[in-house]
């Protein structure tokens, strides 16, 4: 009978992937690298070698010669006239003298008259570098999003406001605005939970300003806030109660 050799595969202790895939992990630098250094120095060395090689190739690809300095005022003006009015190039020095100190105004006037300035390769290359950074950042985002546990995180703009409005003298409704700013929550679910909790009607309504509000029948401001904080893990300081016109954070 045939036997097959079973191979013990090394998995990174941090991300759980074979080390060759570690570089795609969101915690590559912070977790995988230290783990590899401590536990598998040999593998780490090889991996780094390969990564560096890849990087070097990448860099070799996108390095056209870059000018080391931006254009001087004179060069700038010359280029401008070369593009739009070649016969005026000779008058550049006199123009510069005339507008000494007010070059900005000159260029504004010129762009108004002829059109956009020719691009300075120095700045242009800077831009492309910037784009490169942006790409890296985007890539970073992508990396962070991978995996089952990764969830969107933007707590900063979470802001839930709970207000109460009177209805029919004796009755009240509680309005919850801003639940959609809480990441990873469906408004329908919240509404369901609320109607279950307060044994009454609860509905999701679109507001004219594009936001959405949940309307709960009855006066339940504090209870709603408590439920939102407990059940949906919204930080207490992001939930505001409208008490006589003041927005008071539910808890700190």
């Amino acid at each position: 009978m045939a036997t097959i050799e079973r191979v013990e595969v090394l998995y990174c202790g941090s991300c759980g992937c074979p080390p060759e895939y570690c570089e795609y992990s969101p915690d590559f630098e912070t977790h995988c690298v230290p783990w590899l250094q401590n536990n598998e120095p040999e593998v780490y060395k090889n991996l780094m070698k390969r990564l560096k090689k890849g990087d070097a190739e990448d860099e070799a690809d996108d390095k056209p010669e870059k000018p080391t300095e931006p254009w001087t005022m004179e060069e700038r003006l010359t280029k401008f006239y070369e593009k739009y009015q070649p016969d005026k190039v000779d008058s550049v020095p006199s123009l510069l003298e005339k507008y000494a100190g007010k070059e900005d105004k000159l260029f504004v006037a010129l762009t108004k008259k002829y059109g956009p300035e020719p691009e300075d390769p120095y700045y242009a290359s800077d831009d492309s570098d910037l784009e490169g950074d942006m790409e890296e950042m985007n890539l970073g985002d992508k990396k962070k999003r991978r995996g089952a546990a990764a969830k969107k995180e933007n707590k900063a703009d979470t802001r839930v406001i709970i207000t109460k409005t009177k209805r029919n003298k004796k009755k009240a409704v509680t309005n919850v605005v801003g639940m959609e700013t809480v990441p990873g929550i469906k408004l329908k679910d919240v509404s369901k939970a609320l109607s279950k909790r307060f044994a009454g009607s609860s509905s999701v309504k679109d507001l004219p300003n594009g936001k959405k509000e949940i309307i709960v029948q009855g006066d339940h401001m504090d209870d709603v806030a408590a439920l939102i904080v407990d059940k949906f893990n919204v930080p207490g300081n992001c939930v505001f109660l409208d008490i006589d016109g003041d927005f008071v954070p539910f808890s700190d």
Partner: peptide, 8 residues
């Protein structure tokens, strides 16, 4: 394609 596949 690798990073995308690793994201599922």
């Amino acid at each position: 394609a690798i990073p995308f596949i690793l994201g599922g």
